[in-house]
Structure formats: C-alpha cells, structure tokens
Design a protein around this nucleic acid. Structure first.
Lengths: 293, 293
DNA sequence: CGGGTCTTTGATTAGGTTCAATAAGAGTGG
DNA sequence: CCACTCTTATTGAACCTAATCAAAGACCCG
C-alpha cells in the first residue's frame, strides 16, 4: 500500500512461460512460433549478410499477455529475450518494495542480459501489452557465436548498445531538468515509433505516469504537470495516454535549464495552442498485440 | 570557462599511448609489460581454471600518467582496457562542454566497451593517477573467445557486470537522496578498496568533489556539505581527500529519506566526533602508480 | 611566495516533491 | 446497462531538498 500499486500486476501471473505447455497452447494466430537466424538478425537490426540462410537453427517464440511477468529478480538465468512485438518494462525492486523502471523494451530490443553475470536475473520484466518474444537461450547464443563470427560480433555489439543506452540514462538523470527529461523521453519514443514503422507524430503511451516518472527519476505529478505544460505551449497535445508531437525540434532543443545562462529557453516559440484532437494517422492502440513484422 | 575546470587536464595530453614508442620508452620499473591469459583472468576476477597455462598469448600493458587521456569520444575503437593498477574516470561530454562522470574504473575493471557498437568510443577515459593498463584488442578478444569457450563466457559475464552496475547507478540517481547517494558512494569505495587489499577504513579519494558530484548527480557543494555532515555525526572523518570510515553500518543503512516515514534516520547514532586524524594504516597515496599485483 | 585549483561554509532561491482533492477511465458484477 | 470500485490522471498549495551565488580558507606547483 506504499507507493507501489503495481503489486496487483505482479501477483496476477505466477510465472507462466518457459513451460512449453503455455507456449504450444493456443496462440496459433499468426502462426509465427519460430524464427530462423536471419529473421533474428533482422529484428535486432544487425547485418545478417554473412549468415547462411540455409541455417537449420530455429528460435522459439513465446507470447505474453498484458501484465504477465517474463522473469523475476533472482530467478535462474538461462535465456535472453528479443522483442518481436509488443511493449514491456524492466524494473528493479528495492528493499522497500518500490520499483524502479529501468527500460521500456520494444521491438528489436534485447533484455535479460543482466542475468549473465550472476546466473540470475537482476531485474524483472513485465509485459505492458500483449507481446511476442523470441527466446534466445544463452547456451545457444555462445555456440552460435563460435560458429558464426559475425553473429558473435553482433551480440557484443548489441550488448554494447545497451550499455551506451544506460550511460545516456545516467547522464540524463544526473544533469537534466525535469522538463528536459520528459522532452527527451518523448523524442526518443517518437524516434522508436518511427523506426518501427509507426507514426512518430501521434502515438499512445503504453506506460503510466508513475512508470514514466520512475524511469525518469521524477514523480508522477511532475510528469503529468510537465506534459500539461508542453501542451499549453503547443509543443504537444495530450489526452491521457495519447500523445501528439507538434514541435519536435523544440522538444529536441529543450535541453537543460541549469547552466544559468541560456535561460532564454525557446519561450516565444509556438503559441499555436493546438486545438487539434484527432488526426488522420493513428499508429497503434491496444491492437499491436501480435500484429507486426 | 564554464563550469568545467577540467579543460586543463584535457589539453595537456594530446593522446599519448597506442604508439608503442611511448610504451617501450622508460617505464621499465616493475618490468611488467606483458601479461598472459591467466593473469588477465585473475585481474578480471573470473575463473581461469580451464585456461591452458601454456597459452602463448600475451597481452601488452601501457602506462599512463595522471591527467593523461586514454581515449577520446569519437576516436576509432579497436581495443578494450583492463585496469591493472591506478585510478581513472570515464566521462561523457555534452553539447555545452560539461562533463558527466560515468565511472571511476580501478583495478579489475574493464572499460572501452561502449566503443564496440558504433566502432568509436562513446566516452572519454582519463587517468586520475598513474595507471598500468592491460590492452585487450577487440579482435584478439573475439578470436580468443572462439578458442576458449570459458573465456568467451567470462567476457560476456564481465560485460553483464558492467550493465548491472549501470543499472544500479540509474536506480540510485532516480530514487535516492543526496545523503544516501554519498553514503553509498563511500560504501562502494570502501568495498572496492577492501577487494584490492587496501584498508577499507581509511583511504584517499582520487577524484575531486566536482567529479564525485557529477558522478552522483549532485553539485560539488552538496557533496562537500554532505561529507561534512557525516563527519559531524561521526559516521566518517574527512580531511580533504582523506576519508576515514567510522560507522560502515550506518552508512550502509542510510537509505532514502523520501518515503516520508522512516524519517527517524540513525540520528542518535555516534557522536564520537572523531578527533582522530592519523591512523596506523595508510593504504594508498599518490604512490600507487605502478605498484600492485 | 604567488597564482591556480580545490574545498568549505553561508545565504538565498527555485525546482520538484509531498500532501490532498477531484476527475476521468476501465473493469466487475448484479 | 448501470452502479460501484479501483486505477490512473490532473491540478493546487505548502514544504523542502538541493542548486545557485558568493566568499574565504587550504593546498599544490612552479
């Protein structure tokens, strides 16, 4: 009853998958339960050039429904996960039960890496929407790395990418103002949506203000207030989970306030007020469930 | 002239090493210019069991003097570094020239990993003391990984360790109060010193308050004030760069203040005042230069 | 000893949190 | 289908932590 209302989510699913039963159960829709190496590389956005397309290896998929937990902290580690579709969050739980959001994995992201070191997952992953994940058993990965040097390099590369991302987070949390953090968050989201082929101008947030706040090191109130402020200025439109990007450049340049100088901000910017509430493109919805690729 | 007085440090050394010249120059002291695979594993604190001790492979060492830059942001990546002795900092430079400290690598730490992804270092590494580093060419690493499966696993493990560390940083920056951050910083340092065989109770900081502040997402004034406060309460003794740990448990349990409750703190704790200024054990000094192993 | 860097400490300000109340959705079950 | 409940979101007001501005002392190096 503290400040962690997520408790419900966490108890509702007593660790489902990893039991082939739950995998081979229903979920025949889309009939895409296995991927080959090439598809794997494609999803990860790494060159699959030198990969022998005649490779026999196949990688199993697993589906999770909104709210389900993919893995828990302390659970024995043996496989990495690659998001094929859907949205998740990874969190750390501190000694008081408070959760700290670490990332919001989406298509093409790899997670579970933190389990390699201690042989146990260091974080918890939860589905924020219905998800389709590709299982990548660590044993298989290392074996594969030995057979395909390019793939090995690619895996190192992906892990490096994760590290750089974390560094950027640290940098952001350590130096940017609340407004700048929220602005960057929106810009990053927008770019990710663009990468995935969705609209970068209009999309739905899959996470709560509380989760965004945790991720950005802010309170949910501050996030809400900041979004409202951006809305007032005409940088975005906000309606609950629906976000419309109106002035991407302003959001991008809205850096820190701290440096005392440069405090002129982009104040006189747009005052469009943006009364627009509906636009022709609606990229997602809760319908992203198992529809991608 | 902004808030980055480190400029001096950064201009004094126009990228020295990586030119075998500067390596094979003087520095014959200790005569430890190469390490074999076993030594490498030992330093990294990973099992070297299955490693053939008759392995021919040798890894070159390089020495850097205080203030020298090991690599810069954007510089082409080709090698990883393992700290054999000495202290460093890795930093990110933002668009305004401000630096954000990401880590303080010391014995056994690996850095340069962020360069794998984009083929260029994403951060900058600077020696905070004279250092002895082991060069680990990335090409060599991958080749080695193929020949020695255990080593490959170990490398993934080390990278995973780095990621977990970053996650912990994010968590700290996102949720802990200034006091809690400084306390944890001291505890971590203390433990690292213990690991390295130094005293965990009395040691010298190798970084400035400014660097600590950057690392912890605080200003140098706050760091200074917090250290003074800890001193007042008797948790530590502070004299410039010299820190004496007086109540490790209190520092460890000094978590967050935020949760409103649990605000009792460990107030009535020790009021020893600690007038002690000199103790029998003095672990380091600027003399750590090339004396370890 | 002098210039520069680093550290400490104080006074003041401000950005963000906390507490609190209301509103808007989403889900449940009669 | 609507009442009821629970979660999520918005907004306001007061408070407080840490940043900012400022000044003086300590240390280092040439």
């Amino acid at each position: 009853m503290l400040s962690t209302p997520m408790t419900e989510n966490r108890t509702e699913s007593p660790i489902p998958a990893l039991h082939s039963s739950s995998v081979e159960a229903g979920w025949q829709r889309q009939g895409k339960l296995w991927s080959n190496l090439k598809e794997l590389c494609d999803v990860l956005r790494i060159p699959s050039a030198a990969v022998h397309t005649d490779e026999e290896l196949l990688f199993q998929h697993v589906q999770f429904k909104t709210g389900q937990r993919i893995h828990t902290i302390g659970q024995p580690f043996d496989t990495l996960y690659i998001v094929h579709s859907g949205f998740l969050k990874t969190v750390l739980i501190d000694e008081f039960g408070n959760e700290q959001v670490l990332s919001f994995p989406m298509k093409g992201d790899l997670f579970g890496v933190d389990g390699i070191h201690t042989k146990r997952y260091a974080s918890e992953a939860v589905a924020l929407s219905n998800c389709d994940l590709i299982l990548l058993p660590f044993k298989k990965l290392t074996a594969l790395g030995r057979a395909h040097p390019e793939f090995e390099h690619a895996m190192y590369s992906v892990m490096s990418r994760e590290l750089v991302r974390e560094q950027a987070m640290v940098s952001m949390l350590g130096a940017l103002s609340a407004e700048a953090r929220v602005a960057r968050f929106l810009v990053n989201l927008s770019e990710r949506y663009a990468d995935m082929g969705y609209s970068s101008k209009l999309f739905n947030l899959r996470m709560t203000r509380h989760e965004i706040g945790s991720y950005l090191g802010l309170t949910l109130e501050t996030v809400s207030r900041t979004l409202s402020a951006f809305n007032e200025i005409g940088l975005i439109t906000v309606d609950q989970r629906s976000i419309g990007i109106k002035d991407l450049d302003a959001l991008k340049t809205l850096r820190r306030l701290p440096p005392s100088s440069t405090r002129a901000k982009q104040s006189g910017a747009k005052k469009a007020k943006a009364a627009a509430s509906k636009e022709p493109d609606q990229p997602d919805g809760e319908w992203d469930s198992l529809a991608t690729a």
